[in-house]
Amino acid sequence: MYLHSRRILLQKGISALLLMLFSTRSIAQNFRDTDFWETLKTLQCDLYVVEHSSPTYEQLNALAYLHNVLQQHRVTQTHKRFIRNGVQWLNEAAAAHYKKPYTQLTPQQRQMVLRAIVKETWGKQWVETILTYIYEAMLCDPVYGGNGNESGWRWLHHVPGKPRPSKALV
């Protein structure tokens, strides 16, 4: 574990550079909050597929979890801005390909849009970010609002370390 931080650093350095590049890009102001969360919910369901042994989307509680992330003070404003801006860019990409917002596309069209945006630097970084918070929601201690009934841990046969947190610290 001594060298763990060295490896994390390499990943973070790249991520930070991308966030710097893209978080300040201007976005249109006519995007409503309801559209924002609806888009994220649709996207999360496109990125996470429920199968017989895996947790349900409801057990993940991934949308509420992401909402909490955007309130956490240990998450930088730059990172939060990147998440928010990415939703707008996703819709811009959907409109460019199909002239419709992301939520109004068919599942096949949405996958096409995703495959297109991950070819771009911002898109790959942003989708990875959204995926990361889905997996955080699935595998966090339930005190953070995700991992309902510890379904994520059971799915991966994970034994949590003890003592477990009694409340969310971030």
């Binding site: 003070h73 240990r74 595998l139 201690d141 370390g161 947190p165 969310a168 971030v170």
Partner: peptide, 18 residues
């Protein structure tokens, strides 16, 4: 001290905010 991956490892609870 708890084994709280979110706070300790993913949000760097024990380090100052940069």
């Amino acid at each position: 001290f708890t084994k709280d991956e979110i706070a300790v490892s993913r949000r760097d609870l024990y380090s100052p905010l940069l």
